[in-house]
């Protein structure tokens, strides 16, 4: 049998984009196959949880774990894969900081379920809600229990490396896989535990080609509502670009394409609360000393939660709203 090191990839509360990003490394995927034995990857191959449970502890060399921890199944597999893996990587924004699923942390769990099962387009005449256990003639069956809020991977298990991005850029994934292969061949060393990998040291602005001046903002406005100068820093034009606070790694794709950075690569090194940082930064360059005018300028940011915490809420200092954190799922 093969003696190749073992590789696993798992999705918890996520969209599947991270898996696509891995496949998007094109022919590099053959290197993965050549160097690793893929033992567990639900999106790509058939496997059962019990197969993983049967593995020896630490027998998987590398696990890329994407998705946040939204229910007890997510947590169970996170703990299982932690136990079975030598290197556990929080892969992609959801596992790192909660991402879009983490935005639900503003809402009590019961409200989320009610909304999901009573929308205008939901056919649910008996107003049924999902039950976590149900007695069938063959015996009791279970579905996973939702948690009050979504947690990030490292709020549940010990994580070796962090690879942010929604999804991580394919060239960064390829580079990380190359590195691991080189480590296997004894040609390179692993970064220190806890490191953020597949990223740059600075922020998105470092890669952005737009001209930058001293910033003074008189008005914030949504990008679709105004004509923007293609050469000038978007933030200077009042378009709330998250680039200054967002970790370098994507190559400033969005600003290059004329759209503002929305922050998918998460906080820069040393930043504890991405949203708070960004609020402070934006507020710092508002060009007014008149409280009414300041209010008016800040009203241009129509969706502060989405602007400042789109990717980062579950991983922020707040983690969510108190009503959500204290809510109980039934």
């Amino acid at each position: 049998m093969t003696t190749k090191p073992k590789f696993a990839m798992y999705w918890a509360a996520s969209c599947g984009g991270c898996e696509i990003a891995v496949l998007n490394i094109h022919e590099k995927i053959l290197d993965v196959d050549a160097n690793f034995e893929v033992v567990f990857w639900p999106v790509a191959m058939d496997a059962k949880y019990k197969d993983v449970e049967a593995m020896e502890d630490g027998s998987i060399l590398l696990t890329l774990f994407n998705g946040g921890i939204r229910n007890d199944e997510n947590e169970h597999i996170a703990k299982l894969l932690r136990q079975k893996s030598k290197i556990l990587v929080a892969f992609g924004s959801c596992a790192n900081e909660g991402c879009i699923p983490g935005l639900a942390n503003f809402t009590p769990i019961q409200e989320i379920v009610d909304t999901a099962f009573s929308t205008l387009t939901t056919e649910n005449p008996d107003n049924i809600r999902p039950q976590t256990t149900y007695a069938m003639p063959e015996g009791e069956i279970h579905i996973p229990t939702l948690y009050p809020i979504l947690k990030t991977l490292d709020q549940v298990v010990d994580v070796d490396y962090y690879m942010p991005g929604c999804p991580p850029e394919s060239h960064q994934i390829a580079a990380v896989i190359d590195l691991v292969i080189q480590v296997l061949q004894g040609k390179a060393e692993l970064p220190p535990k806890g490191a953020v990998i597949g990223v740059g040291l600075s922020t998105v602005c470092d890669d952005c080609k737009r001209t930058r001046n001293i910033k003074k903002i008189k008005q914030f406005g949504r990008i679709q509502l105004q004509h923007s100068d293609p050469e000038l820093c978007l933030l200077e034009q009042g378009i709330p670009c998250n680039g200054p606070a967002t970790r370098q790694g994507c190559g400033a794709l969005c600003p290059a394409a004329g759209a503002q950075c929305i922050g998918c690569y998460g906080p820069a090194e040393g930043v504890i609360d991405y949203g708070a940082r960004l609020v402070a930064a934006f507020a710092s360059v508002v060009d007014s000393n008149n409280p009414d005018e300041i209010d008016q300028i800040m009203d241009g940011l129509v969706d502060p939660a989405g602007q400042f915490y789109r990717f980062n809420l579950a991983g922020s200092l707040l983690k969510g709203s108190l009503t959500a954190i204290r809510s109980i799922s039934k």
């Binding site: 600075s202 001293i214 040393g270 710092s284």
Partner: peptide, 26 residues
């Protein structure tokens, strides 16, 4: 210096005019 991306948000904030921006190195 490695972490600074030269976004220039800080440039006008200092009440003591202590912040200098290097155009060449951004």
């Amino acid at each position: 210096q490695e972490q600074c991306s030269g976004c220039r948000i800080c440039n006008d904030l200092c009440p003591f005019n202590a912040i200098l921006f290097h155009e060449e190195t951004m």
